[in-house]
Each structure stands twice: as C-alpha cells, then as structure tokens.
C-alpha cells in the first residue's frame, strides 16, 4: 500500500484502487470533522437550545405541525416548515390577511383571554405597559399540571429564548420542560400561585411576537389539543370523559391517575 513497504511497486491498479479508497476515507473523515467543528461552534448555551428546538421540531409528526392558519381555518392542510417561527415565514403575512370562513370561536370552557399571545407549549405572553412581557401557563397547561410538586424557574438576569427552555415543572414524579415563548432577560419570577411565571425584558425594544397564536387560531389550536389529549388520556377501548359538567377538570393527574402522564406531558408540552 505504501511505497516504502518492501516489494511495493506502483501499477495502474494500485493508483486507481488506493485513490478511490483514499477519497472514501477522506470524505468520511471530512464529514466527521465538519460536524465536530460545527458542534463546537453551536454548543454555546443559547445556540444549543436553538438546535435542540430544531431537532425536536424535526421529529414532530405532520399532525403536530399544523400551520396556525390551518388551525384558524384560513387554509387547508398546511404544515409548518419554519419551526413554528412565523417571524421567518414568507407565507405568514399573506395568509394572515385572509379572512377565514365562518368560524365558531370557542375555547371550550377554558379561559384564554384575548389580550394575550399564545405559544404552542401551553404558555401565554402578555405585553405589559412598561414594555416588559409576562409569561404564564395557559388554562389547559394549568389543568394538565394541576398543583405541581416542584417548579424550577430560571434566575433573574438569565436569558431565555423563544422555543428554548423556559422552566421545568414536575408532577407525580414526571418532570417536564416548559418552552419559553419569547426571547428576553428574566427580571422577575412568579410561579404556580402567582399571576405569571416569568417577567422578561425583551431583547429588542419592540419585540416581534408574530410567531405567537392569536384570535381564531387559539380556538382551533385548543380544539386540536383537546382532541389529542382525549386520545392520550383515554385508555384503549374505553371512553372516559375528561370533562366534568362540560368543562375540563381542574386537576387532570388527580382525575386520571392511571394515564401515562410522562407521555401526556411530553406530547402536550412539546418535550419529547
């Protein structure tokens, strides 16, 4: 193989054979090195969270990737390819102006105030008058967690990134990560018993919240979520109801302790 090895002589066969394998090995090595180099570059805390979200979004099924405009009835069967970040989406502004067909707005007895923006990880964002944003769990999110055993909030001064880790909560031995809906620096923290979980100072003065759900989209989204929850919580072959007098029960883990909450939380909070 090598010219210095005893008895070696170059022939056409050697040149062809060894150059092909040299190229193959080089391609393999370059591929590995490139991904290692990129890894070193992307492994910084903020960037790693962005990559995590990309990777997790990549694994979502088409059903889980329904476009917000599909949820709102403005368009049929559209799936998101922008990691749910409509700020980057070219089609979003065009579709946003489409008037939806007649749509029966309802949040199915859940409390979704319309002064807020909603993120698919069961959080809401509210613009406060002082320019800060408050972040909290939606009504569905609250009912899913019930009274959490433990909540692990970021420290003030920490930065959170949209679709990155916001905080974690655990209930019944299952820990779940809650996605942060916006970019910002945490200036105050609340908790399950407070009005909000986080108060953040946005990184820009006038933050773009175009990626969050509003209005009719919320209705479609809540509906889709409730359907999925029904499937997740119902044991196969039975038709247990999650509703208690028409409205979803307050503390779901308490009402349905036999359900696989690890799985439910994973799906509902988009934490695979």
């Amino acid at each position: 193989m090598f010219p210095f090895v005893d008895g070696f002589h170059w022939t056409f066969g050697h040149v062809l054979f060894l150059s092909i394998f040299g190229i193959v090995l080089a391609v393999i090595a370059v591929t590995l090195l490139v991904s290692l180099r990129r890894t070193a570059r992307e492994s910084k805390p903020g960037k790693a969270e962005a990559v995590r979200w990309k990777s997790e979004f990549h694994d979502l099924t088409d059903d889980e990737r329904r476009c917000r405009h599909d949820l709102a009835g403005r368009v049929d069967h559209r799936h998101c390819h922008n990691e749910f970040d409509c700020r980057q989406c070219e089609t979003h502004p065009k579709l946003a102006s489409v008037t939806a067909a007649e749509f029966d707005f309802s949040t199915y007895g859940l409390d979704y105030p319309m002064d807020r923006f909603y993120h698919r990880g069961q959080t809401w964002v509210k613009r406060e008058s002082d320019g800060t944003l408050t972040v909290g769990l939606t009504d569905l999110g609250k009912r899913l967690l019930g009274q959490p055993d433990r909540v692990n909030l970021p420290n003030t001064g920490d930065k959170v990134f949209a679709n990155g880790r916001g905080w974690t909560a655990s209930r019944g031995g299952v820990e779940v990560r809650i996605l942060a809906p916006v970019d910002g620096e945490v200036i105050a923290t609340g908790g399950p018993d407070s009005e909000f979980y986080l108060r953040v100072k946005p990184l820009e003065t006038n933050p773009n919240l175009a990626h969050l759900l509003r209005g009719q989209e919320v209705s479609g989204w809540v509906r889709a979520q409730l359907e999925q929850l029904q499937i997740l919580v119902t044991p196969a072959g039975s038709t247990a109801s999650l509703a208690d007098g028409g409205v979803l029960m307050e503390d779901l883990p308490k009402a349905q302790p036999e359900a696989n909450w690890d799985k439910v939380y994973g799906e509902m909070f988009m934490a695979p």
Binding site: T31, T39, S43, V51
Partner: peptide, 18 residues
C-alpha cells in the same frame, strides 16, 4: 447533554453524504 444533542443534529444533517 447539549453537545451530544448538537453533534447529533449536525451529524444528522450530513447523513446523506454517509
């Protein structure tokens, strides 16, 4: 582990080459 996750993602993108 963040770097494992990032490595997975970067490697995954180059898997068609492999």
């Amino acid at each position: 582990v963040p770097s494992f996750l990032v490595f997975e993602w970067e490697l995954h993108k180059l898997i068609p080459v492999m």
